[in-house]
Amino acid sequence: MKFWATSSAALLALNIVGALDAHGWRQQSIYQLLTDRFSREDDVEAPCNLIARQYCGGTWKGIIDKLDYIQGMGFTAIWISPVSANLPEGYHGYYTTDFYQINPRFGTAQDLKNLSAELHRRGMYLMLDVIANHVAVPRRSKFRPSDGTWGVFNQDDDFHKLMWCRDWDNQLEVEQCWLGEKGDIALPDLNTENPKVVLELQKIVHWLVQEFSVDGLRVDTLKHIRKSFWPDYEKAAGVWCTGEVLHGDPAYTLPYQGSALSSVLNYPLYFTLRRAFQSPDGFMIELTDMILRIQHEAVDPTTLTTFLEFHTVPRFAHETSDEALRLNALAYPFLGDGIPITYSGAEQGYSGGEDPLNREPMWLSKFDTSSRLYSFVARLNAARALA
């Protein structure tokens, strides 16, 4: 593996030519998809056992084949699953093993480059999901960093000592504990106080962006690493980043914008938006208050990323059968402040419940462009583009 920099200072001095800045991303509309569940390159309407939590066959080539479908709704960027090598159970991309190896279940490195190139040919942009907080190991296995499974992270002090999260109000514990206590997979926490680990993570994200011509990043588990780690990470990436801070209190979430990354996912608005539109007697006053509070407290509310659903939460259509409420809720991210994200399947009325039932394969919808919701989303994007 070759790198263009041998020190942190030299690495951070390199920028990605032509990358979209915050203003550029403010103009975009993002379509999020799970690579494994979006499109198979053989175009077979294969069954997918959601409960089994296994690969169902979606690939980067499959995405390329369906870009007309995405672009037909007016989306200008796609957010895809993490691309690094994963455990066999990691169909979603979040069970990283070696950060420098590409997940062969999604295709080859050239396939990913082809996807990026085709997006750019169309005037669209590629957002990559990235992980810096942890790697993954089956709970039944002994975790030995020195066995080489985790690539450059091969020493005991590359990881925090095993400690499961107990006190979610203890920020130091949140930043150093391991995730995955209740599942079959444990997520050993990288020691991001170790200068070696910090530099390696910067090299990894820089390589990913450069190698695959990535335009922006969605950063996983932001609150699980100290805030001071993130500005240099974003500089190393050289592209605009929005990060996941899974917390509904704007006093906790919003300070990560600016002090950590350029943008965060607007979870405070998400929780309030869902409550407001779940029933005719929804909490509209609460929604109004939250909008005003975010406008007042956020560094830049127009570059927060806004959403109604994605792959970690139940579909909104699972929570209410009222079509008017569903349409209004779906419309809000396009019409309010912020950069809208739409999770694939919303335009086909998918209504899956808790994970893994909210990860339905898109090919079973036959990518129907005649559906009412598909046209509705296209009109929302068209209206936003004129604003």
Rank of each mutant, 00 (worst) to 15 (best):
residue 39 S to E: 14
residue 65 D to F: 12
residue 34 L to T: 09
residue 71 Q to F: 10
residue 164 W to N: 01
residue 95 Y to K: 10
residue 325 L to C: 04
residue 339 I to P: 13
residue 303 T to F: 05
residue 314 P to A: 05
residue 223 K to D: 15
residue 4 W to S: 12
residue 36 D to N: 14
residue 241 C to D: 08
residue 120 H to N: 07
residue 357 L to A: 13
residue 281 D to Y: 10
residue 350 Y to E: 15
residue 218 R to F: 00
residue 208 L to C: 06
residue 156 D to G: 04
residue 31 Y to S: 13
residue 331 A to D: 01
residue 276 A to C: 00
residue 250 P to H: 05
residue 186 A to L: 15
residue 323 E to Y: 08
residue 28 Q to P: 13
residue 284 M to F: 12
residue 108 T to G: 04
residue 51 I to T: 14
residue 223 K to R: 15
residue 129 D to R: 00
residue 179 L to C: 13
residue 187 L to R: 10
residue 180 G to T: 10
residue 240 W to T: 09
residue 148 G to K: 00
residue 315 R to V: 05
residue 198 V to P: 00
residue 238 G to F: 06
residue 12 L to G: 04
residue 275 R to L: 09
residue 185 I to S: 08
residue 63 I to V: 10
residue 225 I to P: 05
residue 83 V to R: 07
residue 38 F to T: 07
residue 75 F to R: 09
residue 380 L to Y: 01
residue 132 A to F: 09
residue 275 R to H: 05
residue 79 W to F: 11
residue 380 L to A: 01
residue 281 D to K: 09
residue 377 V to I: 15
residue 203 K to E: 02
residue 374 Y to F: 06
residue 134 H to G: 09
residue 55 Y to K: 12
residue 137 V to A: 10
residue 23 H to W: 10
residue 330 L to E: 09
residue 179 L to I: 13
residue 84 S to T: 12
residue 295 Q to F: 10
residue 16 I to D: 12
residue 118 E to R: 06
residue 322 D to E: 08
residue 381 N to Y: 06
residue 206 H to Y: 00
residue 367 F to A: 02
residue 78 I to A: 02
residue 22 A to T: 04
residue 153 F to I: 02
residue 168 W to H: 15
residue 193 E to G: 05
residue 197 V to M: 03
residue 233 Y to P: 04
residue 346 A to M: 13
residue 311 H to P: 09
residue 170 N to M: 00
residue 228 S to M: 15
residue 203 K to A: 00
residue 60 W to D: 10
residue 216 G to L: 05
residue 320 T to A: 09
residue 139 R to Q: 12
residue 305 T to R: 10
residue 188 P to G: 05
residue 13 A to D: 07
residue 112 L to K: 02
residue 376 F to A: 08
residue 26 R to I: 05
residue 125 Y to E: 11
residue 324 A to M: 13
residue 306 T to C: 11
residue 187 L to F: 14
residue 127 M to S: 12
